[in-house]
Design a binder for these strands. Structure first.
Lengths: 219, 219
DNA sequence: GGGTTGCATTTTGTATACAATATGCGAAAC
DNA sequence: GTTTCGCATATTGTATACAAAATGCAACCC
């Protein structure tokens, strides 16, 4: 049992408040462009203004809020240009993740991903969109984790989180859905072949599709 | 004069404190691994603990500090692995910046960069290392700006700032210095040729040299 | 009517006070 | 001697108070 620690996770009010605000932003309860009133929010969240202000700083760093001196914090409102910029960087990062994952993937990883792919195809067959998206997300997170670069993972996740506030959940038409599932199959194959370049291309193409979807829903 | 505003820049104590702390970390006055005592620092900076704590949150988001609940903030201590991870991502980002810059560069940009290159070569000829580095930095910032993606610029700059705390300023031996200057010349040529792939390769190679330097100074 | 000024109120920024947790050290137990 | 316990003190987390800046609205002037 030497060296086996079980540290108790510690959280503080700023962290909890930031998490809660993140959710409120993503759900649209705090709309893009909205000015955040500290007194109201502190009452609403049941914390004093001090941890709330720290939470604002954290969310500003994540790009979800913008801090306006003497005017307080405002929910970021993404323009089409912002979205393009974000996707441009995300494509680069996810492409890198694909290359790294292809060079670092283990047989155990592949087994796991194949199981997830099977699960996602079942959701697809059942027309179960929520579960399809859930597993989809898990697969991407797994690939990112196999890449083994925490800075990469964190950077991608932070950028991706900004886009969640757009709530662009698409209604996948059947043909597109079939195509997306097939793309995922190809990703696993490229991973199994340790073909980094191919996986990068697939991930970038996949992301470009998502970008088109997001931009369409912004009209 | 319509639409010509001259907004007065506003700053707050958390922002000023964060900037000051950033400098103290980079200069080594706050050493890697050091625990930051709020009372001492608030006295030292002449601010109360509240804006100081907000500043800590900002620096934690930048990766310069790590926030330990109930134990306060600690200056990040980069391992060799951290450095490799950071460079891995930075190479991807700067490579992307190179591609974008090559597709977006104007003749005016090229003129400016050629002037900067001439200035840098003069510093090189005079063995003027501080000015060489200063102009070097300006050139890279310019390329990044020409890429025209603020998210990319910000991401790269944030990652790069983490490495400054390592203070790896190398003593350039003559041959290496000559080589670096030549590489910069090639970058301008690639830009002028709007050859994104070549510029990406040059920037990534250049950065790999920097990475080797950093890792060597960490031994 | 439009523009400016003055003032009350609200909101944000910061300092201070109080509460909770961590740390350090001496004393007690083995 | 080593380990554990108890307690004082220091530090961090959070709430509250005070100060500074912003906002809104009525009154006044052209």
């Amino acid at each position: 049992m030497d060296g086996m620690n079980f540290p108790i996770a510690r959280s503080t009010l700023p962290e909890a408040a930031a998490e809660r605000l993140r959710t409120l932003i993503i759900e649209g309860a705090l709309a893009p462009g909205a000015r955040l009133n500290e007194r109201e929010l502190s009452e609403r969240l049941g914390v004093s203004r001090t941890p709330l202000r720290e939470a604002f700083r954290m969310l500003a760093a994540d790009g979800l809020l913008v801090h306006l001196p003497n005017r307080g914090a405002q929910v970021v409102s993404l323009s089409r240009e912002d979205v393009r910029h974000a996707f441009e960087v995300m494509a680069s990062l996810e492409g890198l993740a694909g290359e790294l994952a292809a060079s670092r993937v283990t047989d155990g990883d592949l087994g796991e991903l194949r199981a997830l792919q099977a699960e996602m195809e079942q959701a697809h067959a059942r027309h179960d969109l929520p579960n399809y998206y859930r597993v989809n997300r898990t697969i991407h997170d797994r690939i990112n984790a196999i890449a083994g670069n925490p800075i990469l993972t964190h950077s991608f996740r932070t950028l991706n989180a900004r886009l969640h506030a757009l709530r662009f959940r698409s209604n996948l038409v059947r043909a597109k859905w079939d195509h997306a599932v097939a793309e995922h199959r190809e990703m696993i194959e490229a991973l199994a072949a340790r073909d980094g370049e191919r996986l990068r291309d697939l991930l970038v193409r996949h992301l470009r599709t998502k970008q088109r979807t997001v931009l369409e829903t912004m009209e």
